[in-house]
Amino acid sequence: MTKMVPLPSKSIVPERDAEHEPILETHRLGIDFGGLTAVDEVTLAIGRTEISGLIGPNGAGKTTVFNMLTNVYKPTRGDIMLDGKPTQGKSVAQVSRMGIARTFQNIRLFDQMSVLDNVKVGLHNDIHQSLLASVTHAFGFRKSEKEANERALEFLSFFNLDKFAYQKAGSLPYGEQRRLEIARALATEPKIILLDEPAAGMNPSETAELMENIRKIRDKYRIAVLLIEHDMSLVMNLCEGICVLDHGKVIAKGTPDEIKSNPKVIEAYLGKKKEK
């Protein structure tokens, strides 16, 4: 398998991941909406255990990239390789089973279901329970449910949500809802998790806790994390690699330090200096 992104490129995977194939690669990815090019020429490579960030001003196309990576949108151009396999032509559910999980910018929980059941839905493809067992509550039903409950509670306690297990997900406070969404995504046992503005609406102490959690996720489950975030202190402190998007195009890639001092990035965020 040849690597799609010629390495070394500007998208450097961390040294510890360099000898493995990247978990996620995109090559000149682009999408048009009725003649309007929303995203173009996005080439990325994300290492197996890398925490990377996708940043950019509002409307830059960050969530659109997420939607293409999870096949919610069909890319007009370019390829996506997940763990060395193309995702082209797969359904959203199939791509999820290939090992990509995500959270949403506007939280999407199963509001009417309990917190525990939300995570159990995440475990769905790992619960071995036939339709017959579902309908009769026999034929190995108890065993599969017991296993599911134990594993779901494990995920919940990892995120300090176990005390809410039997509450309705819709009744949780905002911060807990965000954490539950991550727990549900993790329950699918992904190889990479995409977080869409995980710190939105959080106060500084919650954000600090979230950063700690994201690091813990990476260390415990040995997976890659790609996050969209507007909180620059979070991005700069947490991410090992950063990709900056503006007007649908990648304007910079690199380590946090490189990004901070990149004049193009400063221009995109703050505007051009007026020449005197």
């Binding site: 199939q94 999820s96 999980a101 949403f104 999407r108 199963f110 009417q112 839905v121 769905h124 995504a185």
Partner: peptide
């Protein structure tokens, strides 16, 4: 139930 509550999220977990 998950499909009823949020179809997009249900798809996203496979």
């Amino acid at each position: 139930s998950a499909i009823r509550d949020n179809r997009i999220a249900a798809e996203s977990v496979g």
